[in-house]
Design a binder for these strands. Structure first.
Lengths: 200, 200, 200, 200
DNA sequence: GGCTAATCGAGACGGTACGTCCTGTCTTTGC
DNA sequence: GCAAAGACAGGACGTACCGTCTCGATTAGCC
């Protein structure tokens, strides 16, 4: 998130920032990302355009921070994945929650907007990954490590790659509309990933 | 690919269509998708703007058809995945080829542009999936079915889901810049997917 | 009215010509001259654009001919100014009729459109004058010559100029909206013109 | 001159206004009114199109103000008609000057353009008359009143109408290209107007 | 009465300009 | 002494017409 270096951040108006976040998220939700304009955000926030240009470098940048802020308040602490001892059950539970979140219209439009921008704009994409995606994935890494310690996952498996076996399919179906997502589907993913496709 | 229903397609100028495809792909490659404009495509193609608006409904639509056309000539027939009897080896070979293709700059910019647009524009996304993604994925389905017949994959596994275990992680890494992609990585994916994470 | 030289006029469709005249006059009356387009005329007349371009060289040209045609059927023969022996009365009567005509909405829009085009487009202006204005003015010349023969107008007066003393003021008021026109006004013009401004 | 009501005129850029006036007059002079476009004016003036649309409602409006501005600087004060005691001589002198002005190519194109627009666009026509024509005509009214006081014009004559006897014919010949204009012609007009057509 | 050539309706084409919207910068003004 | 308000140069949008150019399908009128 390329910050404009000038401008003294201590003088910054907190009220304006909040208004801008709210306006940005509301507009993306209402009219979609491409029709959301900086002028529109400024007008809706009751703010001068310059106030936006002073602190952010692009529309995507505003939206990313707004979304970060939103996640900060809501999902907030990104608590850990439960560890009941049953790895499959734990993963299935978390993925089911993810399915619900992905279908929540409150998050869908801004999430898609940011994801799409990140596909094409590598800098923003990396920011998105670092700030939002990686912290969530790290939880899976931790749970998988615990499973390795418990002997439920082969020790030589790399957890960072392993988690992609069930997370990425879900992500891709949602992102690219390749197929519908359901609890049944994510349950299946977990089973396949844990036990593999080849006969035992 | 929402067709403008009016306009008689038999009167259409083939020369203009080709010029528009070429211009669109060239511009996306040179300046990126957001800076590619319909005016720019028209100017570069030596065509009136109306000729674009007459046959396509949006910039994304032009690019999708241009890309489809390109795939049609190039990759063309979308031949099958080899079947040497060694499933893991076959899959690894194909995924390595995919890694190369994803890194080919000739395809990268337009592919990303279309994928990004598809994330946010469901209609175009579905078109993209139907016309470009599904045909490729079907090849994996076929290979996996052959493997089931040969006893290399458990019979109750759904091949359409199974293929996602190794395809989606690669797709997500590329799309979202979550991590670099390499032959080693895709080889690992195939191994994990075939044998699972749990100890045997 | 520069005719396109090619094209055999004997093969010409009379029906199309009529339809084009009607459409042109109707459109100018309804939406005004600037918003009347050749495409609009063609569409309204149920005619291909080329049929207009084949026979006329411009929108103004179409309208001029349409108007000529209209005048031909209506006012038609351009009969002479009456000669009751009372010059002043005869002129007043004709000018009063002219006032009525200028206020007739059926003629006003196309007349203004043509006059305006003629101001700026000398070729069309001359055509307009030759075909429409001069024939009318010649009637005044004849009546004034008769008056000279009767001793009611000084013999050395040039009738072509003399008529302008009462005709041009009316024309200018109408054309340029400089002031309203009325019977009283034209009567006054005739009186002033015949007897002059200086005391006798 | 329909003003766009919004927009605060105190913030207006004087430099842009001048550049727009200059560009508009130059273009009308060079390529004629119909081929003068708002885009062309903006480009030549080094100005965004919006800056024109913000302050004027049409091409005619721009040109009218530009012309008004030009008249303001040039003819400026519109001094009075001389009063040498010889009414005929004074009028002839002024009309000869008018003939020269009407033939000055510097004024001709924009004047015709405005006059033509005024024929067809009543609002603009009235603006044109009020701002440009009436002030000039008022000078004739004053001179004629002085002549009435001196006993050179009959007291019951309405000067506003009287002046049209020699001004309107000249105007019409120029506007409608009905006949050439010359010193001899305007001299004749004055003689006819002052002494009438009827024998004394 | 059939042939053939021009005219017809239709409308795609390369273009130009429209009037609107937004960008990112710069300036003014009111709180 | 900021920050809202918004004017500015620039440029793309999507639309409307321009005048030219094919297309078949009539429709003449000369053989």
């Amino acid at each position: 998130m390329v910050k404009k270096p000038a401008s003294d951040p201590t003088r910054r108006s907190e009220k304006s920032r909040r208004a801008i976040y709210d306006a940005a998220l509301a507009l993306v939700g209402e009219v979609g990302y491409p029709k959301t304009t900086i002028e529109g955000i400024a007008a809706r926030a009751g703010v001068g355009k310059q106030t936006i240009y002073r602190w952010w470098s692009s529309k995507a940048d505003v939206l990313l921070e707004a979304f970060l802020d939103l996640s900060g308040q809501t999902g907030g602490e990104t608590y850990a994945i439960p560890d009941t001892g049953d790895l499959a059950a734990d993963l299935k539970a978390v993925l089911r929650a993810t399915v619900d979140e992905l279908n929540d219209p409150r998050f869908e439009r801004p999430s898609r907007a940011l994801a799409a921008e990140g596909v094409v704009n590598e800098a923003l994409g990396r920011e998105f990954v670092t700030k939002l995606l990686d912290p969530s994935l790290r939880l899976y890494v931790e749970r998988l490590r615990a499973a390795q310690a418990a002997g439920d996952v082969r020790p030589e498996v790399d957890p960072r790659i392993a988690l992609e076996l069930f997370v990425s399919p879900l992500a891709q179906r949602w992102l690219q509309h390749t197929a519908p997502i359901s609890y049944e589907y994510t349950d299946t993913l977990v089973d396949y990933a844990l036990h593999g496709l080849a006969p035992r």
